[in-house]
Amino acid sequence: MHRAVREPIIEVSDLRKTYDGRAVVDGVSFTVEEGEIFGFLGLNGAGKTTTVECIEGLRVPDGGRVRVAGLDPIADHEAVTRILGAQLQESALQPKLTVREALELYSAFYPRPLDWKPLAERLGLTPKLTTRFGKLSGGQKQRLFIALALIGSPRIVVLDELTTGLDPRARRDTWELIEDVRDSGVTVLLVTHFMEEAQRLCDRIALIDKGRITALDSPHGLVDRSPGSTVISFTPSTPLDNEELAALPALMSVEHKENRITLSGTDETVNAVISLLVRKRITAHQLRVSDATLDDAFLDLTEV
């Protein structure tokens, strides 16, 4: 906060963590700038959670260096907990503690907490304040944990599987809240395997596969990296010759479904298709050009 130059708020270099001789995190390096939403995207077991748990100070790295606002999460654990709020993938509260009591308790842990009442209201927890933790639904527990991650007014918030267990409406509300959190200057670290969530929220995404970062870019950048970054689909008024389609430049794939044709490629492919249609005086019904989704890029960039 007192830094004049924008120094990264999180620095991870060559992080390694091994369980039973298996490298779960195998040389991960990245930096996160203050105020950005940084996402980790990857399959289950790719090493996302272990990486963020090293940042939270929950796990001791076997190698490499982690700094959070210049602090070591293990050696300076208490100082880190004051500026970092965490929503863990696996955790619990005392089953007989009510929502209100939990919010009051966790507020008291921090030097400058948020007012929990509007936070609870925003997360739809107000009708549940007198309900015990053990009686909450999965989605309600999740929303309470999001509140507890934010309650200490952190500079950095780590959200592991943010919207797991939430219904679509609550998910969208939560995304809006996270955007507001970022807009107030907080850095957000997001672990997810929801493409839509990553695409909507993240400024940058690290794709993690088998303990390594395989790509690190903005959501747009990742989609553009994938060879089939643009998708064009239409129903031609008269059938098109397959060979003519196959000759299109930078074409990645062709799909016929009944009369509808779906092509993926680049902007060049799109232009070539349009000139082909004009030349042959074919009308393209229901012509749609769209960017490939992060989903497509993810599958292209992750070895299975």
């Binding site: 400058r112 509007p118 209201e121 925003r122 107030s184």
Partner: peptide
């Protein structure tokens, strides 16, 4: 500029941890 949901708590009469 923080939205209302992220307003700080008043600092009086806060219990210790």
């Amino acid at each position: 500029t923080a939205p209302a949901a992220l307003a700080p708590a008043s600092s009086d009469r806060r219990p210790t941890a």
